[in-house]
Amino acid sequence: MKIYDGGKIFIGLVIFVALFASPFYLNMGKAIAKPELKFDTPEIQRLEKETGKKQCVEPKEFMRGGHMQMLNNWRDEVVRMGNRDQIVIAGQKFDKSLQLACMKCHSNKKDFCDKCHNYMAVNPYCWTCHIQPKEKQS
């Protein structure tokens, strides 16, 4: 089979395949680090001792996909409507607050928030208003 303008067609096909198949060779031989979250902050350990289980405001399955919408709703209620009513989970009262509720238990931003956010390359704009917690660990 004779290919007319074979050189040009070959260059075009090479570029096309190189771009389309780039994930295959760019990740070749690289160890894929999966995000491992840590749930062992002092506050979580204390909670586990008192209540007998590790308990967030909602189940894990919901929090995985829905935490951002929950935070967004809390933000709207607190900042825009002035509704600071606390929420009660398993007899414990929590503020509707990122810094005073979420980060109280999950005080390990680097081993909690950042793990998945960096893995998924998402850059939430929490910390453009909130002050980032200072962490001792590296």
Binding site: M1, K2, I3, Y4, D5, G6, I9, G12, L13, F16, V17
Partner: peptide, 10 residues
Amino acid sequence: FIYRVLKWGS
């Protein structure tokens, strides 16, 4: 895709 392009090229 490659097959179609080569077929056109021929």
